[in-house]
Amino acid sequence: MSHVVLDRLLERFGEEVILGSHSHRGDETAIVAPTEIANVARFLKDDGRCSFEMISDVTCVDWIDEEPRFEVVYHLYSISKKHRLRLKARVPEGDPRLPSVTAVWGGANWFEREVFDMYGVVFDDHPDPRRILLYPEFEGYPLRKDYPLNGEQPLVEMRDPDTGQLVMPGRISRDQGREV
């Protein structure tokens, strides 16, 4: 059924943008050039035969030994047509950024924040680019394959929200209380 969608996509954007496609286990998938992701998203939502009104999920896979390293994965669903589509876009480790699709689907907001939080992939033009599950002082991106399973984080000293000054200087040492 969704072959219609993949054909539509290829017809509209051509092979420079739609880099590949497969339907492994019945999940229609299109691999998209990362710079074009927002345009493709806009088309998929507005086109009468695709009409993907809902974004189900956004996530990322860290293919650490491959280049480009990060694969951002979008799952779309059409309530009216009852079909699904998966979009994938690869971004390199050196500059992991691609356009945000929040302008197309408001629902992508927190999902993209989570991808940034966990993988450090930056979404351009995101309205609220903060961490979501972790705290702002967290160092590193925990779902990257090179982040250790038992990775420790330094304790965070309390700061006055207005002045930015330390509230109790010297009370917490960066080495978590161990002798250096």
Partner: peptide, 9 residues
Amino acid sequence: SKGDAVELG
């Protein structure tokens, strides 16, 4: 609204 709910997932 119906439309907002769908768009917000």
